[in-house]
């Protein structure tokens, strides 16, 4: 898919860079409001509804009044929409029982709205390290609920995921990202099932050096993920650019075949990589371009 990062002959367009309003620098609430049409944003289960996590205080962790997930309803490019924004500054965007339930319930309500005649689209702003460790099993359960609700909604309406940065999207919520109809990333954004530090602590520094930023972005970064088809659109970190990319993605409607259904294609790509001798990240797109499912492969 076309890149929306303004670049000519591989050169960065510095005028566009200097004129932009950074999306990354906004907090979750401001991001959600910035995406929606002016004056249409209305927050559900806001801070004054006080549905914070009951599990943090007993463990000596200060809770947040919205539990780190901001749900905002409104209008996006003229269509009813719900934006679910994860606050990366609170507990690394970790998903707990309450924040996960907020996300899952708002997606389920969007499903109901669609069935009752209000075609509502969903946008997920995924800046999260995955399940919040203090609420391990409950967090996992709600991530499963989020995924189930995403699967139900995406049959009816497009779901747009945005990974802008700087946290990135890892763990259980990276599975949710993989279910989205369209995934939009910036160069600063990262996407991976296991985060670099998790891989290093589990498999050793020879497997993945979590202090090597260049390596991390070469593998998990937005440019690599869009270049290898694991995400769809690369945008500049700019409010207008992100908003137009989201509206355009919504306009494309429900894809014929979702990324997560193209099993044969992904299996062929996995077969093309030898884990004992992995390709250089820069060569992966080329390796995968030649990895097509064999004729008659019905696995």
């Amino acid at each position: 898919m076309t890149s929306r990062v303004p670049a000519r002959n591989g050169q960065t367009d510095w005028n566009a860079m200097l004129a932009r309003v950074s999306f990354i620098e906004l907090d979750a609430r401001a991001r959600a409001v910035a995406l929606l049409d002016d004056g249409t944003a209305r927050e559900l289960c806001g801070p004054f509804d006080r549905i914070e996590s009951p599990w943090l205080e007993p463990q000596g962790v200060v809770p947040e009044s919205d539990d780190g997930v901001v749900v905002v309803k409104g209008v996006l490019g003229g269509r009813p929409a719900v934006v679910i924004a994860v606050e990366q500054a609170f507990q690394g965007g970790g998903i707990g029982e309450v924040s996960g339930a907020k996300a899952a319930a708002s997606l389920s309500l969007a499903v109901r709205d669609n069935r009752e005649g209000t075609p509502t689209v969903a946008v997920l702003l995924l800046e999260t390290g995955g399940v919040r460790l203090q609420e391990a099993n409950l967090g996992l359960a709600t991530v499963a609920e989020v995924c189930a609700a995403l699967l139900e909604l995406r049959a009816l309406q497009p779901e747009v995921g945005v990974i802008a940065g700087t946290m990135g999207c890892f763990g259980g919520m990276s599975i949710a990202a993989g279910l989205c109809s369209t995934l939009i990333m910036t160069r600063e954004g990262r996407l991976g099932l296991n985060g670099p530090e998790v891989i290093e602590s589990e498999a050793g520094v020879a497997e993945f050096d979590a202090s090597d930023d260049a390596l991390i972005w070469a593998i998990d970064g937005g440019a690599q993920r869009t270049g290898t088809g694991l995400a769809d659109v690369l945008v500049l970190d700019d409010v207008t650019a992100v908003r137009s990319a989201v509206i355009e993605a919504v306009g494309r409607g429900v894809p014929g075949e979702h990324r997560s259904r193209r099993i044969r294609e992904w299996r062929a790509r996995l077969d093309a990589v030898d884990p004992a001798d992995p390709p250089d990240p820069a060569d992966l797109a080329t390796v995968w371009a030649h990895a097509v499912p064999a004729e008659g492969d019905r696995r």
Binding site: D27, P47, F48, V62, S65, A89, F90
Partner: peptide, 18 residues
């Protein structure tokens, strides 16, 4: 009127004023 500002992020705080 009531207001909410800030985030419970490192070096920061949130304030709910009623």
């Amino acid at each position: 009127r009531r207001t909410h500002v800030g985030v419970v992020g490192s070096g920061d705080l949130e304030v709910l004023m009623t």
